[in-house]
Computed example of a mutant assay.
Amino acid sequence: MADDPFLNKDNLMTKSAKKSSSVYRMVVLMIVMVCGVYICSICLKQLNFQTKSRFLSIVIDRPCEPPNIEEWEAPYVHFPGPQTYSRAECRCNPVRYFAILSMQRSGSGWFETLLNSHINISSNGEIFSVKVRKSNASTILDTLDKIYNLDWYSSAAKNECTAAVGLKWMLNQAEILARYKPFINSTLLIPNLRQVEDMSTQALEYFKSTRHIVVYYEDLVQNRTKLEEIQDFLRVPRRNLESRQVKIHKGPLSEQVENWKDMEKTLKGTKYESFLYGDYRK
């Protein structure tokens, strides 16, 4: 009786080996596919993250949009970049520069404290009263750079969202002590008033091509809406401005001058006569 070739032991072992090999191949293929899918998902996540990072970087580095202002106002709008800190979210907020030109004993100190009570205004006082800061052109420019670049530290310094920054410059530097009653030379009174008037006229003439606003002490005392006009000039939100400065001259003018009668006699009948009736008791 002949043996059946299909029932041969060697044939059975070969078929079993072939079947096991196919299973192994399938397992390896599945593992490779799973690994491939996992690696692809990781790559896609990394690519997506890098794309977002590049997009965010572009947004951060994007220059500030032009502010919504009139064309004539463009030269007066600035975007300072302080060296000592970051303006953060306010870096695209425009800043306007200003200077207060004033005679001494004219109420400019009180006016400045009113400005500094506004959260977005920083007026740094008589910066150039310190001699070394005005010793030469280089020190003057360096000081102005620090002020207008928002790098100047003073009691008036605000935060990164400052919208108007400036200083005060006195047109005269005569010192008058408030606790004394001055004795005014009536002979020189009219010439001195003319000199002050000429000085003010020259200052206005010099700055006529520069955007400016004229503020009188009488405006601040008698017309409180003038402060709103000043805030509009500086393009800052309107706020109720206050000052803690105490007025040192109280009572009528006739009680503030030693030789008041001589002054009356000198000024009556002149264009300066109205100065005799300026009674600012507030």
Results as ranks from 00 to 15, higher is better:
residue 61 D to F: 09
residue 68 N to G: 05
residue 260 W to E: 04
residue 6 F to A: 07
residue 198 D to H: 03
residue 243 S to Y: 09
residue 149 N to M: 06
residue 128 F to A: 02
residue 169 W to A: 01
residue 207 F to A: 03
residue 236 V to I: 04
residue 31 I to L: 15
residue 116 N to D: 01
residue 230 I to E: 13
residue 117 S to M: 08
residue 110 W to C: 04
residue 104 Q to M: 14
residue 162 T to L: 00
residue 125 G to Y: 01
residue 10 D to T: 12
residue 142 D to V: 05
residue 8 N to Q: 04
residue 128 F to G: 00
residue 139 T to H: 06
residue 21 S to I: 11
residue 188 L to E: 14
residue 181 K to F: 08
residue 127 I to N: 03
residue 87 R to N: 11
residue 236 V to T: 00
residue 91 R to P: 00
residue 250 K to V: 11
residue 129 S to P: 12
residue 248 I to F: 03
residue 96 R to C: 14
residue 78 H to Q: 09
residue 192 N to K: 06
residue 42 I to F: 09
residue 195 Q to D: 13
residue 86 S to D: 13
residue 124 N to G: 06
residue 261 K to A: 09
residue 37 V to N: 00
residue 153 Y to I: 14
residue 94 P to Q: 03
residue 154 S to R: 02
residue 199 M to D: 02
residue 87 R to W: 07
residue 159 N to W: 08
residue 33 M to D: 02
residue 11 N to C: 07
residue 170 M to H: 11
residue 217 Y to A: 08
residue 32 V to A: 13
residue 64 C to L: 10
residue 243 S to V: 08
residue 193 L to P: 05
residue 216 Y to R: 12
residue 38 Y to C: 11
residue 31 I to D: 09
residue 266 T to I: 01
residue 277 Y to F: 15
residue 114 L to G: 08
residue 28 V to R: 10
residue 101 L to R: 09
residue 144 L to E: 09
residue 226 K to G: 03
residue 8 N to D: 08
residue 188 L to P: 05
residue 119 I to P: 08
residue 170 M to R: 11
residue 10 D to A: 10
residue 49 F to I: 11
residue 103 M to D: 08
residue 76 Y to W: 11
residue 48 N to Q: 06
residue 235 R to K: 15
residue 246 V to Y: 08
residue 99 A to W: 00
residue 269 G to F: 00
residue 206 Y to W: 09
residue 41 S to G: 05
residue 220 L to V: 13
residue 193 L to F: 14
